[in-house]
Design a protein around this nucleic acid. Structure first.
Lengths: 111, 111
DNA sequence: CAGAATCCGTACAGATACTG
DNA sequence: CAGTATCTGTACGGATTCTG
């Protein structure tokens, strides 16, 4: 077994904290989750709410959040197409975690 | 001003949650903090405790944690040189945050 | 409307060699 | 011992164009 394979193996069982970071750590994942806490949103709504994110990155992060079970993606077979994104129960359970991080930052990073 | 407005306002710059992630989000920062919770460590001790990290990356992340005020770096003017790393108060205050993230992952990412 | 595909520059990360 | 310095590869992110 090569060193690279060993590392990749170890990467699979990172510590839980790092797994949490990998779920919420993307540049646009916090904004996405935050806006979905307010309610279901369509793709272009999210684009307008997070204009700094390119469409490619928004799509990518939405797909990652979906495959991590944080958000639900519902596609309507219509013309023109419509897609609605919403938080899953797992996604909603993240809210308290985010608040803890939020409060820590406000207390300790008053820079 | 409501809590929600606070978040949205800061989001334009970077929301507190993302600031927290930027502090602890590096590949080796969690392992470093974790080992320093157990007590002060020298550079080569950390290398042995986190062998998968290259020396360059370990140094880099230690410096970042230092400049974020999470760890303290004490250099002894000796030959051979000795450097001791320890958590600051701010660093120790992170522990509860990490536990919240840890617990969330264990509950929700049992994959 | 909600994306997929492509191209491209930069930042991040690893390996190796060197040093006070 | 505790780092630098350098070279190199890769992954990330942005901009643009195309499509069912």
């Amino acid at each position: 077994m090569t060193r690279k394979q060993t590392i990749q193996l170890e990467e699979r069982h990172r510590c839980p904290v790092e797994m949490t970071i990998s779920v919420i750590g993307g540049r646009w994942k916090c904004p996405i989750i935050h806006h979905l806490i307010d309610g279901t949103k369509r793709f272009n709504e999210l684009r307008k709410l997070i204009p700094e994110a390119s469409q490619r990155m928004l799509t990518k992060h939405l797909r990652e959040l979906e495959s991590d079970g944080i958000i639900h993606r519902k596609v309507f077979a219509e013309v023109p197409p419509r897609t609605e994104y919403s938080l899953t129960d797992k996604g909603r359970s993240l809210e308290s975690v985010l608040w803890v991080m939020n409060d820590w930052a406000e207390k300790n990073l008053n820079s």
